[in-house]
Amino acid sequence: GATAVSEWTEYKTADGKTYYYNNRTLESTFEKPQELK
């Protein structure tokens, strides 16, 4: 079976905060997504 690849990509803001962006739902969040835990 195919492994589900996380759609979340980790980015940093200009002031160094980490956030996560989902390229399928176009959602962004500062909290670590469930799929990455």
Score class of each variant (00 low, 15 high):
Thr3Pro: 13
Asn22Ser: 02
Tyr11His: 15
Thr9Phe: 10
Thr18Trp: 05
Lys37Trp: 14
Trp8Ile: 01
Asp15Ala: 06
Leu26Ala: 12
Gln34Lys: 12
Thr9Ala: 10
Glu27Tyr: 03
Glu35Leu: 05
Ala14Glu: 11
Val5Lys: 13
Glu10Met: 05
Ser6Val: 09
Glu27Trp: 01
Tyr19Leu: 09
Lys17Pro: 01
Tyr11Thr: 06
Thr29Pro: 01
Glu35Lys: 05
Lys17Ala: 06
Glu7Cys: 07
Lys17Val: 12
Thr18Ile: 14
Lys32Ala: 08
Tyr19Glu: 04
Glu35Ile: 06
Tyr20Gly: 00
Tyr11Phe: 12
Ala2Met: 13
Tyr11Ser: 05
Ala4Glu: 13
Asn23Trp: 14
Tyr19Asp: 02
Glu7His: 08
Leu26Asp: 10
Tyr20Asp: 01
Gln34Leu: 14
Ala2Leu: 12
Val5Phe: 12
Pro33Tyr: 02
Leu26Gly: 15
Val5Glu: 12
Ala4Val: 13
Lys37Gln: 15
Thr25Gln: 01
Tyr11Ile: 13
Leu26Cys: 15
Tyr19Asn: 03
Arg24Pro: 02
Gly1Met: 13
Lys12Ala: 06
Gly16Thr: 00
Thr3Met: 14
Asn22Ile: 00
Ala2Glu: 13
Ser28Val: 15
Gly16Leu: 01
Ala2Pro: 14
Gly1Asp: 12
Ala2Asp: 14
Lys12Leu: 11
Thr3Phe: 09
Tyr21Asp: 03
Leu26Trp: 05
Ser6Gln: 11
Ala2Ser: 13
Asn23Val: 11
Thr13Gln: 04
Leu26Ile: 02
Leu36Ser: 05
Asn22Phe: 01
Ser28Gln: 11
Thr29Ser: 09
Glu27Lys: 06
Lys37Leu: 15
Lys37Ile: 15
Phe30Gly: 04
Leu36Val: 09
Pro33Thr: 02
Ala2Asn: 14
Ala14Gln: 09
Ala4His: 14
Asn23Lys: 10
Glu27Ala: 05
Thr13Leu: 05
Val5Trp: 12
Pro33Glu: 02
Glu10Cys: 12
Tyr19Gly: 05
Tyr19Gln: 05
Asn22Ala: 00
Ala14Gly: 06
Thr13Trp: 03
Ser6Lys: 09
Ala14Thr: 09
Lys32Thr: 08
Gly16Arg: 01
Gly16Cys: 08
Thr29Glu: 02
Gly16Ser: 02
Ala2Lys: 12
Ala14Phe: 04
Ala4Phe: 06
Leu26His: 15
Ser28Met: 15
Tyr21Gly: 02
Asn22Tyr: 00
Ala14Arg: 07
Lys32Asn: 06
Ala2Trp: 04
Gln34Asn: 14
Pro33Gly: 02
Ala4Pro: 11
Ser6Gly: 13
Asp15Glu: 10
Glu31Thr: 11
Thr18Ser: 11
Tyr21Ile: 11
Lys37Tyr: 11
Lys32Ile: 11
Glu7Asp: 10
Leu36Thr: 08
Tyr20Glu: 01
Pro33Phe: 02
Trp8Met: 00
Leu36Asn: 08
Leu26Val: 03
Lys12Trp: 07
Phe30Met: 09
Thr3Gln: 13
Lys37Met: 15
